[in-house]
């Protein structure tokens, strides 16, 4: 399982800023699309991975889209 200690490229972060992603964050934050908490993944058996409709349904349920 990937942890998030992979160093993120500062260049990449800068690039996103220049591209307006920071400002876009403010706009789309209104959607409340929070990343799905870990238990959403837990709900899906490891062996099966995620199933797309469940994923989508669950994702948007949690995202309050």
């Amino acid at each position: 399982m990937t942890d998030n200690k992979t160093p993120k490229s500062p260049t990449r972060r800068e690039f996103f800023k220049t591209a307006g992603l920071g400002a876009a964050a403010g706009a789309v934050a209104g959607l409340g699309a929070e990343p799905v908490p870990a238990q959403a993944a837990d709900a899906v058996p490891e062996s099966q991975g995620y199933r797309e409709t469940e994923h989508v349904k669950r994702y948007y349920e949690l995202s309050k889209f």
């Binding site: 399982m1 990937t2 992979t6 993120k8 990343p35 799905v36 870990a38 959403a40 993944a41 899906v44 490891e46 991975g49 995620y50 994923h55 994702y59």
Partner: peptide, 10 residues
């Protein structure tokens, strides 16, 4: 988001 067991780095 890594929400579906397939947590993926860059």
């Amino acid at each position: 988001t890594g929400a579906f067991d397939a947590a993926a780095d860059l």
